[in-house]
Structures are given as structure tokens and as C-alpha cells.
Design a protein around this nucleic acid. Structure first.
Length: 260
DNA sequence: AGTAGGACCTGGTGGC
DNA sequence: TGCCACCAGGTCCTAC
């Protein structure tokens, strides 16, 4: 469920609380999870980082635990009453407990001893993500622009909500072939992406149902969505009814009048 | 190269 | 209450 802003919020919440903590015990509840206990028990957490939608707990002196929450996972330092039901892994730290909650079991956790093992595209909030680089990404594909934005090998961190919202901000129809975007449209899209992600981080992400911060709180950005999940409601810019369409098997929301 | 469909999993919701 | 269809912040794989 979480996209970049939600994962970033979780990472910031964890960072404050678990950096420097020592892992005392691993409680593996889901038999699908296999971790090398010897590499983890007794280690201290050196850092908490985000790459795309992955959460990385770096251990001292080497190794890391890498989580991906997929659709419904949570990583909770504070677990509200009754919400520990789908705990699949519990990390007992000398400063408290960290729960990996994963109701649909789509989320993953793995140990890596040699860096980050996944290939990902540009970080949209990194300094390398320039208009120029976005132009380079966009003009080599005839796929619909929304699918390009959601491709983690190209840009890492955008998912269904924020790609739809960024396209609305840039007034671009999500079905447009990526390589049909003009230079001004690409510039507007770059701005839309960066700003929607920053705005969402400032509100601790978007909570529909599952997502919680590491402290168990809901995000607040759902109040500020323009199109996502707003079928039939008026476009905040022009008042036209928001439409829902399907792309790549996922719902996309758009304003049929001001996204062209 | 693109795109559709299914697989992985489980739970919530709305219609009849 | 029961059953059914469809929905879900993700990603990977196969097949036209």
C-alpha cells in the first residue's frame, strides 16, 4: 500500500527510535520468512534508510534487513491495541519491539550482506531527478505516461495514488503516450511529481485503510487528494466530474476536461 | 516493444 | 446471515 511518502514517513519515525538499538531476539511467525539469525542477533542498527519503496535497516558492522510492504504491510514500533493480529515477524530490540505486520503476505523481508540487491530507477526527490532526466525517460517510451511513472526501474517510489495526482497537477491525460509529451508538459510533470511527493510527506502520507506510520498513526494527505478515489466528485480546478478508468489492470482517476 | 492477464494473498464492502 | 463479485498505496511472470 505505501508509496514513497508513506515509506519515507515510516523511515523517519523508525530512525528516531531504533538507530543504535541492539537486536536481542527474532521472532519469526510466518513460515515463509527465512532469515539468517546469526547474522542479525546481537547486531546494532546503524541506520534506517529508504530506497524507492524499500525500507532498509543497516546493521553494524555489515548486513542489512530490507523490507517491502507491498499492498498491506506495516512496520510498527508502536502497535495500537488489536492491530498486532497479522504480525509475521517481531524484532525484539533492547529499546522496544518492532513488528512487521503483513496481512496479505505480499510484503517481503530479506537479509542482504552485500548492499542493496534491487535495481531501481531515479529517486524522484534526489538531485539527479532533473527535468532533463525526466525528458530522457519519457521520450523513449510509447507506453501510457501513467505506466511509465509507475515503472520502478525508471522512477522509484511513485505508485497508483501519486502518479495519478502528479498527472492531474500537470494537466496531462494519463493515457497519453509518454513520448508525446511536449517540453513544457514534461516540465509541469516534473514539478507535479516533486511537489505532490513533498506535500504528501509533509502530511505523513495517505491513509485509506492499512497504512500507518511507525508510531501507529494515520497519515493526513487523503484530505488533499484531487482525483484519486474521487469518481463522480467535482474536479477541484474546473468542477468537471472525475472519471475512473483502467490502465495496466489498475484504477486511474482523472479529470476528463482539464487533463489533455 | 507493448499490453493483457494471472499469480501471489487476505479482507472489506455492497448487491441481492 | 449467506453468497458472490469486485475492490485494494505492489510487483513479477507468461503469452499474444
Amino acid at each position: 500500500m505505501p508509496e514513497l511518502p508513506e515509506v519515507e514517513t515510516i523511515v523517519r519515525g523508525l530512525r528516531k527510535a531504533v538507530v543504535g538499538a541492539q537486536v536481542e531476539k527474532l521472532q519469526v511467525i510466518d513460515p515463509h520468512i527465512s532469515l539468517p539469525e546469526k547474522e542479525i542477533i546481537g547486531k546494532r542498527i546503524a541506520a534506517v534508510e529508504r530506497r524507492g519503496k524499500y525500507i532498509i535497516l543497516r546493521l553494524e558492522p555489515h548486513g542489512s534487513l530490507i523490507f517491502h510492504l507491498r499492498m498491506s504491510g506495516r512496520l510498527l514500533r508502536v502497535c495500537p491495541p488489536g492491530e498486532g493480529k497479522y504480525s509475521r515477524l517481531v524484532l525484539h530490540l533492547d529499546t522496544g519491539v518492532l513488528r512487521f505486520i503483513n496481512p496479505r503476505r505480499l510484503g517481503t523481508v530479506e537479509f542482504s550482506d552485500n548492499g542493496f540487491p534491487h535495481k531501481l530507477g531515479l529517486e524522484p526527490l534526489g538531485s539527479a531527478f532533473t527535468v532533463r532526466r525526466l525528458r530522457g525517460i519519457v521520450r523513449h517510451s510509447r507506453s501510457p505516461i501513467k505506466l511509465v511513472l509507475m515503472n520502478q526501474h525508471k522512477i522509484a517510489g511513485l505508485g497508483n495514488i501519486y502518479s495519478a495526482e502528479a498527472l492531474w497537477r500537470a494537466r496531462i491525460d494519463p493515457r497519453r503516450p509518454a513520448n508525446s509529451l511536449t517540453a513544457p508538459e514534461t516540465r509541469a510533470l516534473h514539478t507535479g511529481i516533486v511537489e505532490v511527493l513533498k506535500d504528501a510527506i509533509n502530511h505523513m502520507g495517505t491513509t485509506f485503510s492499512d497504512y500507518r506510520t511507525a508510531d501507529g498513526d494515520k497519515g493526513g494527505f487523503q484530505e488533499f487528494l484531487a482525483v484519486y478515489g474521487k469518481t463522480g466528485e467535482p474536479c477541484p480546478r474546473c468542477g468537471t466530474e472525475i472519471e475512473r478508468i483502467k490502465q495496466g489492470g489498475r484504477s486511474t482517476y482523472l479529470c476528463p476536461k482539464c487533463q489533455i
